[in-house]
Design a protein around this nucleic acid. Structure first.
Ligand code: NAD
Ligand code: NAD
Lengths: 251, 251
DNA sequence: TACCGCTTGTGAACGCATGCACAAAGTTGA
DNA sequence: TCAACTTTGTGCATGCGTTCACAAGCGGTA
């Protein structure tokens, strides 16, 4: 895989050793990977607007980060900028895609076709970014065979055969929390090594399986924490003789 | 900090000074706040199971973190454990709720009642955790007045009056990306200071507004990165004479 | 060609988060 | 009452991620 990649590709003057790329990929901090995905989205927008070149300062502004961080992030994947000029947008796009593994399609299976599962199955943003939804599963027999977003729902009991047939590499769990661990176990035994979990439970998986969770209640509670913190600050500022808008009261 | 902490604190025999709470809240790292929300969920489950006491080891296992980290996280909010015994589940729940600001209700407004907006509006997990969905907005006149999850949709033009009437403190953006910034601006001028954004765009907001984003495409791409990394490793291991299952080939 | 101005790429410093390891503090049982 | 045992709370070291600041490198210009 690494061997096929960069060799003789015009921008890279000398071919890099495969081991080098591997080392580099391993070394990219997870936080930087998440930002690279954001940069990629911004850059894709730029391509559509016909922008050919962009400086770190501009891109950083559009991505909402500081420019030093952006350059450091990009340096993890190599040096593809031109000093005094900036980055070629298309070159950057292709390199980020390569590092993120987007040169390959990743088929997705959604398990639990309820409120959320329907929304996910109907969402156009996944296929268009290289994540085709290849299978849907539910335990409800009434749903079996019903097409959602163009794909017929399979019964959960067929998960192993269907997943391997359709080469599913990412499993999305949108079942009630009670069912999540069982579903997860079945996905793992079906050979799925990447899981995106919407159910509010902590999944137990083998080491080689990568899990990411999206927990909306936690997000809400983090926001709540900030509201509370602000309220506390305001209260104590008033106590300290400072009004809510920063004006000193009764000096 | 260490000095203030323990003062006369049976379970909470004497009321703590507001300033103390404020200082402590300010100092909690964001990462710890996110985990506290997870601990809270696990603990709530424990209460339902009738568990009254839990050790850091047990709770850490259930929350998927190591126990030292858990104890450090809990130490940010105070010392409410009993050495040799563990933590009283209910006491811990109430203190985490207090720190997260969950003693107060936080009304939520969802903007953009499409695929995702419907799922969110119908989701029972928010109201039950102290985040009542108080208002829904969409630009589509056909949706105006239609009840979704029991709440009639308002037109986006009424956002300011409805939000202040219903004391909305958290705004959820589930509109197409093109509309997201405009919607965000309207929420902010309506006085909403916390925003949860599902649209794949980087929102620009004043400093005092707290934004959290949920970006599924980014999550997918992070998973994709790990798939690619694994594939690279496997490939290079084979090159290095190690088979995919760790067996040395052609030694 | 030599110089100038601009932007990248990165070494180094800093700060935050994590994990270890243990003293302190409590319980239990004799 | 005391000793043995359990578990918390935290000081400290380590590692990771962020930010600063500047040398190196490139294009443009005379
Ligand atoms: N709806 C939301 O907006 C939302 C938001 C945040 C989190 N969540 C979480 O996402 C999950 C799904 O939420 P929802 O609102 O779509 O719930 P839902 O009840 O509408 O749908 C759940 C679906 O999963 C199916 N199911 C149940 N057990 C199953 C099993 N063992 N195998 C396969 N399918 C099974 C059910 O038949 C149903 O169709 C829940 O865990 C919820 O907490 C939902
Ligand atoms: N559906 C998903 O599962 C999913 C997953 C990830 C991200 N998202 C993101 O969430 C957002 C919503 O996705 P969706 O699938 O629900 O889209 P959708 O097209 O089904 O719904 C969008 C809704 O927003 C409304 N809207 C448009 N402009 C508006 C405005 N200015 N003010 C108020 N309402 C407006 C539309 O009338 C529509 O009802 C998108 O940004 C999408 O990228 C969706």
């Amino acid at each position: 895989m690494a061997a096929q990649r960069g060799e003789g590709d015009g921008v890279v003057t000398s071919p890099e050793a495969p081991a080098d790329v591997r080392e580099r990929a391993r070394a990219i901090p997870e936080a930087a990977v998440a930002r690279l995905a954001v940069y990629l989205r911004v850059l894709s927008g730029m391509v559509e607007q016909g922008v050919t070149t962009i400086s770190s300062e501009e891109l950083a502004g559009a991505a909402g980060v500081n420019s030093a961080k952006l350059r450091k992030d990009l340096s993890y994947i190599g040096s593809y900028g031109t000093r005094g000029v900036g980055y070629d947008v298309e070159v950057l796009v292709s390199h980020i895609e390569r590092i993120l593994g987007l040169t390959r399609k990743h088929s997705v299976a959604v398990v639990g076709i309820g409120n959320l599962g329907h929304a996910l199955a109907n969402y156009g943003g996944f296929p268009s970014r290289g994540f085709p939804v290849a299978a849907l599963f539910d335990i409800d027999p009434d749903l079996t065979g019903v097409p959602v977003g163009g794909i017929p729902v399979n019964h959960i009991d067929d998960i192993t055969s269907v997943c391997s047939e359709r080469e599913v590499s990412i499993g999305v769990i949108a079942t009630p929390p009670q069912a999540a661990q069982a579903v997860c176990d079945r996905l793992v035994s079906a050979g799925v090594q990447c899981i995106l979990n919407f159910a509010p439970v902590v999944l137990q998986v083998p080491d080689y399986v990568e899990v990411r969770k999206v927990d909306l209640a936690v997000e809400m509670q983090i926001l709540s924490f900030h509201v509370a913190r602000r309220a506390d600050e305001a209260a104590s500022d008033v106590v300290n003789g400072i009004g809510v808008d920063g004006v000193v009261i009764r000096p």
